[in-house]
Design a binder for these strands. Structure first.
Lengths: 239, 239
DNA sequence: CGCCAGATTGATACACATCAATTCTCGTGG
DNA sequence: CCACGAGAATTGATGTGTATCAATCTGGCG
């Protein structure tokens, strides 16, 4: 099992060791039994900060994350960047795009993905209802996630956005007793800012503010502990 | 290039006359030939400003718009509202929601929708690949639209948001020679504001500013003409 | 050790929100 | 037909949350 409907966000992911590969597969809404997507695609490894594809590229393939974190982003002419999603194990991307990809896909960490030919995929889905059903579920999850993200960007304050992000992050990671209340931020402050519709400076200020008020704590910027998750959840009220 | 990817937005919709009913069905990405969703659902009429369902309701049904405009929205405890989408003829909603609806659905205008039982729908989709394929397409469109909306909310200025909205609106309406360059805003300024992540006042100010600079013109607030769509498109550069 | 990207911190600016009136529009009833 | 009321839109004065500009600090790595 797996928490279920979280909204946005990601999950830690160790890295690029070969052992990272087996550590996966069933993302949100995937029965652990038979995975109808298994063996349809090819495994691809991408190094941290490399692109899987660029916005505007012909959308020939779609992907599912096996390990690591992928970001979907778009940059305007004048350099403003928005990250639409951080994707982790089990999540599908590159499907909704029509002719060309609408966003670039980049590896936040070293990443392992399954790569599918979309044309072939659609044929397979036409033949196998179970597969179609599965894709539908994965896609639904992406939509639900994007919609929560809309509320965050449209109506929440900086503190609320960060609280929401952190809370979602904890909810999403597999609940091991070890990491309860701790999250590993695999992305930089800049990534965070571009996901949350803020600037690096604001992210930094707000997070250190929370740290001063002992709502969270961290020694390294990428290792955050939710000291008072109750206080955070109060801030994150809007979903 | 790849025109296709429109983003958000809606379409006018006369109203509630019985004649409004035949005026429809094939939305984005629906072949006019055989519509696999036809005759699966029941036709329902909803009056302007009535709710189809509320956020939190058990998600038993999904819907497709036949005529009119539907808004999906969420309200925080303290009254902030975000509209995730304006839906018009041919567009599907209420599918991605897991147990409970994540957003309320309300009629912006008098509306005609097709209502589908989701459980039955999933069975039908399992049996008929063509149907599954169709739903997948409708859902993909919703995701692509939401993702563009994320960029708008996260990174665009007020003027850019409004320009983008208007441009999308024109692109989307069926190109009759009559209405070219003219859009009918079926929603109030408040709806607009809540969709664009702004306040009513800002929407009003920016629109009247554009009017003064002769980029757009309108006598009634709901009937906007894009006098210089080139200037608007320049503002709307980010998609 | 020194470099450099990332993170933090401070001072200041500005876009948009907020608060507060009007004005406009339209439906209703006298 | 017109006065009335009420919600919608506009307009103005002011406030503020976050961006911007500008150092400085930190930690990993060659």
């Amino acid at each position: 099992m797996y928490a279920s409907t979280v909204s946005s966000v990601l999950t830690p992911a160790r890295a690029f060791t070969s052992s990272a590969l087996h550590a996966v597969a069933s993302g949100p809404s995937t029965r652990s039994e038979s995975d109808p997507l298994d063996r349809c695609g090819t495994i691809v490894r991408i190094e941290k900060n490399r692109s899987l594809y660029y916005e505007g590229d012909e959308a020939r393939h779609c992907f599912r994350v096996r390990a690591g974190t992928v970001r979907l982003c778009k940059i305007t002419e004048d350099g403003r960047r928005q990250i639409a999603a951080f994707l982790t194990a089990g999540e599908l991307f590159g499907w909704a795009d029509r002719d060309a990809y609408g966003f670039s896909a980049e590896a936040v960490t070293d990443v392992v993905v399954e790569k599918f030919d979309r044309r072939r995929m659609e044929q397979a889905a036409a033949a196998d209802p179970k597969l179609a059903r599965h894709i539908l579920t994965l896609l639904s999850d992406r939509l639900a996630s994007a919609q929560s993200h809309l509320v965050l960007l449209g109506r929440l304050t900086a503190a609320e956005r960060i609280a929401t992000f952190l809370v979602d992050l904890v909810k999403r990671q597999k609940p091991t007793p070890a990491n309860s209340g701790t999250v590993e931020l695999t992305m930089t402050r800049r990534d965070l800012a571009d996901y949350l519709g803020l600037t690096v400076e604001t992210v930094s200020r707000v997070m250190n503010g929370m740290k001063r008020r002992r709502i969270i704590s961290f020694t390294a910027p990428e290792n955050v502990e939710l000291t008072q998750s109750a206080a955070l959840e109060r801030l994150a009220m809007a979903a």
